[in-house]
Structures are given as C-alpha cells and as structure tokens.
Design a binder for these strands. Sequence first.
DNA 1: CAGTATCCTCGAGGATACTG
DNA 2: CAGTATCCTCGAGGATACTG
Lengths: 148, 148
Amino acid sequence: MKHEELGRVYCSLARTWSVIGERWTMLIIREAFRGTRRFDEFQQRLGVGRNVLSNRLGRLSDEGIFERVRYQQSPDRYEYRLTQKGMDLYPVLLTLMRWGDLYKVDDPPVRLYHKGCGELASPELRCSHCGEPVGFHSLRAKYAPDAW
Amino acid sequence: MKHEELGRVYCSLARTWSVIGERWTMLIIREAFRGTRRFDEFQQRLGVGRNVLSNRLGRLSDEGIFERVRYQQSPDRYEYRLTQKGMDLYPVLLTLMRWGDLYKVDDPPVRLYHKGCGELASPELRCSHCGEPVGFHSLRAKYAPDAW
DNA sequence: CAGTATCCTCGAGGATACTG
DNA sequence: CAGTATCCTCGAGGATACTG
C-alpha cells in the first residue's frame, strides 16, 4: 500500500496518517505551534530541505491545515498560519510529546502551564461526558462492519 | 537529518517520532490494540510486506513496546504483546483517530463507549490538576534553553 | 505458521544553484 | 527572502521464494 492510499481506507487513524505521517510533517506543524510562520524560518530551524519544505507546506495548505496569508505586496510574500483544522492537531502533538517526556528524555524540554489554574499541566484524556480519566481498559470499541 | 537522528535531538516529539513515525508502525500498534498478536495475523490484516513487518516487530520489541511471549514449544512460537510502554501510546492513537473522525470520514468507523458512565465517549484533554479541558490557547509553553 | 533472504522499485529527502 | 528546478542518494516498502 502506498502512502497516499492510506487516505482511502475506512480507518480514521490511517487517513490521518496519510496526511501527517511523513517524517517532516509533524515537525513542521510543531514549529507552527511554536509561532513560526515563514518559509525561511521553518527551513532554518528545522534544517529541512527547501524542496521538501516547499512540497509539505503546499500539501498542508491544500489540505486546509495551513492558510497562506499575504503579509507584503510587490513582491507578494506569504506566510503560513494554522487554520482551525490545523489547530485541532494540538492534542496529537501533545500526546506524542508526553509519551516522549515519559520514555525518551530525562528532563522534559518543554513544560506546559495551565493558564486556568496556574499549575504545571499534565494533560490527560478524560471522558467529555462524565469527566473521568479514560484509557484503553476503560473504553469499549465498537467497529463498523466495514471498518478496516 | 536521517530518521534515526530524530531520536537524538532534544525534543520529545521528535524522539517519539523516531520510534513510531514510519508508515506502518502506528498501524501495527493499532492492530495490536485491536487484539492482534501473531505474525501472520498482522501480515494478513494489514497487507504489509513480511520483511517490513519482521523488521518493525523486531524494532518495536527492542524498543520495549512489544514483548515477545512464547505460546508454544518445539517449534517455539512467539506472539507480540503490548507492554505498558506500548499501552501508553493509546492516547496518541486516540487523538489521531479523533482528528480523522472529525475531518477525514463521514461516519466514524470505530465508536468508543466509556465503561464507567456507559456513554459514547469523546475523550478530550484535560488538566490533570484541575480537571478543566485544555487546548493550545489555555496552555503556556516554557522551553528549556537547549530545547530543539 | 513465523519468520528470513533476495531482489527490485520508487519516492522521500538532501544539496545546491538559480530566480523574481 | 520565498520559493522552484535539478540531480542525486538511500532506504522504506513490495513481491516472492525458501526454511525449520
């Protein structure tokens, strides 16, 4: 199965993967959350090839994850801003980061503070209905008959 | 930067990505959560090449995400079970799935019910300290000086 | 069954020069 | 600056035969 074909399978995970599952994509999105918006900034901070970056920014814009916004005229210059759809990848970024915090580093390179309560935040998944923490063992998965 | 080098950068996301950021890895892990444990089951359900599967299962076992458990003697046969470290990838899987539910499919192929309250669960990230939902806008990130 | 071995293809990614 | 174009490398992945 080719990378692109993942997007046509009836599985939400596989389809998401077809969008963000290449080496640089998630790192580019991470940079965007950090505030990076312009081509050369992305290029320098990540050290990614210009052709690859160009391709990814284009594809992510087509996908609706980035919006190209003109910030200057003649010559026209554009910057890349996360859309709501892009912002909605934040939970993915966060859970990836937290697993790494737990298993891949000694000290977390990034600490998150919850503006609401002021505390060091350890975001965790909870049931939106009852508010209890949820994990694999507390959830029952029901597959559609034609799920992949 | 090569894929493997991502694991040496001081960034939890990049290091996590160096473990699970290849095309098949996350899908193999997803299958494992679904209950799949044996080589040929993985191979048939995913349609992944045997050599690739062999390589991934080996690497994920070395990494401590799978544990090889002998289930038969002469000839010895092993199956692959998620360890706690592997189970801890569930939040990643779940957030990837939910983004896909939201943007990439009409009907979610998998529905999750919370055993605790019985309701259809929409897991969301909340502050483990105060229990409030958290997102990009309600968190303040503090980077270590040598963070990538 | 659960792999290993072999051979092949293709595309992701790197390096670099060039352009408006 | 923000890209595009070109050329190259390398490795991920596919197909398939083989083994204990």
